[in-house]
Design a binder for these strands. Sequence first.
DNA 1: ATCAAGTTTGACCAATCAGTCAAGAAGCTT
DNA 2: AAGCTTCTTGACTGATTGGTCAAACTTGAT
Lengths: 216, 216
Amino acid sequence: MSAPRPTPAEKSGSAKTPPRSRIQRRNRQIILDAALDVFSTHGFRGATLDQIATQAGLSKPNLLYYFDSKDAIHRELLTRLLDTWLDPLRMLDARGDPHAEIMAYMRRKLQMSRDFPRESRLFANEILQGAPRMEPFIRNDLRALVDDKARLLQAWADGGRIARIDPYHLIFSIWSLTQHYADFAPQIAMIRGDGHDPLDGAEAFLEHLYTRLLAP
Amino acid sequence: MSAPRPTPAEKSGSAKTPPRSRIQRRNRQIILDAALDVFSTHGFRGATLDQIATQAGLSKPNLLYYFDSKDAIHRELLTRLLDTWLDPLRMLDARGDPHAEIMAYMRRKLQMSRDFPRESRLFANEILQGAPRMEPFIRNDLRALVDDKARLLQAWADGGRIARIDPYHLIFSIWSLTQHYADFAPQIAMIRGDGHDPLDGAEAFLEHLYTRLLAP
DNA sequence: ATCAAGTTTGACCAATCAGTCAAGAAGCTT
DNA sequence: AAGCTTCTTGACTGATTGGTCAAACTTGAT
């Protein structure tokens, strides 16, 4: 009749409570890091808890002491990703110089491919699967932001400050060209040679491309 | 002591023998079509034979009557894909007009995103997983072709017939921008609205982009 | 040192996985 | 219609999957 001992995962019912002890913070981080490796290369269905546990250097039951389920780990990774995924576009400033603003946005996205390639692949995997777990985020948050910034780009184009191009395709092109260096890194490495950094020359190329594309 | 009855999969030891009967050709095609659906959205590890069997409207043992294993189905899909994957780039003709040739290549790739989005996602999934089953193809066939065409693009640039841009990044940009419309179609659909065709305006945008990028 | 709380794990479970097999159903040739 | 081949499948297997649980081990405050 006694209440079962609560696990940390149970105690923090919502995503409100931050993990208490030092051990918890440390191990949750280790697990999420290992899970990011596995989910980003094999997708949700293709990843196994045993893989993640091995990668994390923990036992499987220990994983499930910190997270309720495989799904909970994946959800937590996506939640943390969304926080940072919108920021680069959000920073696109209506008061700045159009060309410089778009260029800076492109550079921020390219930097994310350099710094967070696993996160980029996690996102790519999610979209390839039809975005089952991100649909609300994309339909609401992301769409609203893109619509907003597309209006800004359109205004810049109408005002003759950048070339008259479709603002949605402009945004998609930046996503595509920058994320490609993270998502298709193995292919690029195999073609350019393994000693080569896939991102070598990418920034110069993209600066050239967008300078030419955007000139009114 | 009698030899076991051979299955069609066993009979055609190598990829030499074409399937004999009408039923075999038909069912192998049905299976490959269903498997393409499943593998392209869930990746190799995330796909199950039961999913493929259900999608194909066949029983699981029946699947394995036509193919030796899950791996054999996947291998056959990749093999068929490779045949058509190199063609668009192979057609880039040194004797043609540089601008028109590159533009036509871009259009061929965009058409493949329109006609074969599942094949594009199958390829993307394979690369995301580190290209374990395509490494030889990429390191040998694809790399040799890309090196060859990169030399051609470089010669065009050196001759002042197109802008002086890195030929490898030029090729990567075409892959990236065109495949994006297949691989990230769900995201584009959710942002632009479901009634919208993701590829609407894509060709005009890309023509504008490459016209500007390539001008000497 | 003690003791309660927090942490770890071996052993286990039901469900699902890829793949097998023998027997039956459907086609094809005569 | 007979007889042989090709095709199909229900019932199964051993391995792997996500997840549970009670017992044991650590840790930190007193």
